[in-house]
């Protein structure tokens, strides 16, 4: 690895402002989802979880994609900082993936009376991805820190983005033969206000993920710098 000082501290000042904007937008999204958007005629109040469930799921995908992009940069340019960035993105993606499973499960219970439905392709896909990325942490933390760990983590993160379409195809294929389709759901038929609420929530959740990403990155970099300083002092 080439860079001599990989863990530059984040340029201060911007992070609190980013956090403030995020908090504002998340608040706005809550207002839109609960008070502005009209009640769904068919599903009633339970439909409102849609404004969070779908943006959280899309954000989780974005995090995994971002992690794979950083992993590719690491393998390509061999700069150490990409390792931490890729790891933090996977971490955020896994958190948002778990939230997707939780909100999806709640929605399924409210709409169909079951906590879990194997016929819900997206949910099953998230379960597979959740298991896959949970193993990422097991792998990462059982390898000694260093370029080898960075490389292996990066290759594994790249596997993730390939696994998404392949698994989705597999689940689509499986539902016809192995599991009968119990429920079919049309795409959300949305009015203008509903779509607006959805968009606000989407932007808010994406920004929330980005803010958490920056905060965790800043913290992890601080940790790394502190460790380096301590080592420099003790040796």
């Amino acid at each position: 690895m080439s860079t001599s000082y990989p863990n530059r501290p984040a340029r201060g000042g911007r992070l609190p402002a980013l956090a403030a904007v995020t908090a504002l937008l998340v608040g706005l999204a809550i207002v839109f989802a609960f008070f502005v958007a009209p009640e769904d005629a068919d599903q009633g109040i339970s439909q409102r979880i849609f404004y969070f469930h779908v943006p959280i799921a899309l954000t989780a995908y974005a995090c995994f994609g971002w992690a794979a992009f950083k992993a590719l940069l690491l393998l390509w340019r061999k700069e150490e900082r990409y390792d931490l960035e890729s790891y933090v993105a996977v971490h955020q993606g896994t958190i948002f993936g778990a939230l997707t499973l939780a909100t999806g499960s709640i929605w399924a219970k409210a709409s169909w009376g079951h906590w879990w439905l194997w016929s819900e392709n997206q949910l099953v896909l998230f379960l597979v991805l959740f298991l896959f990325y949970s193993a990422y942490f097991m792998l990462r933390f059982s390898i000694e820190e260093g370029p080898r760990r960075a490389n292996i983590s990066a290759v594994y993160a790249l596997f993730g983005v390939v696994l998404v379409p392949v698994s989705f195809l597999a689940i689509r294929l499986a539902e016809n033969v192995i599991h009968p389709t119990v429920f079919t759901r049309d795409g959300p038929q949305m009015t203008g206000t509903m779509f607006l609420a959805f968009c606000v929530a989407w932007v808010a959740i994406t920004l929330l993920a980005y803010t958490l990403y920056r905060v965790e990155l800043a913290g992890k970099r601080l940790d790394a710098n502190l460790r380096e300083l301590r080592e420099a002092l003790t040796t």
Binding site: V128, L129, L131, M138, L139, F159, A170, I171, L173, A174
Partner: peptide, 14 residues
């Protein structure tokens, strides 16, 4: 096994 099983799911489906 933790690494392999999620990746083996599509193979089992197929």
């Amino acid at each position: 096994p933790l690494l392999f099983l999620p990746l083996a799911i599509p193979l089992v489906v197929g």
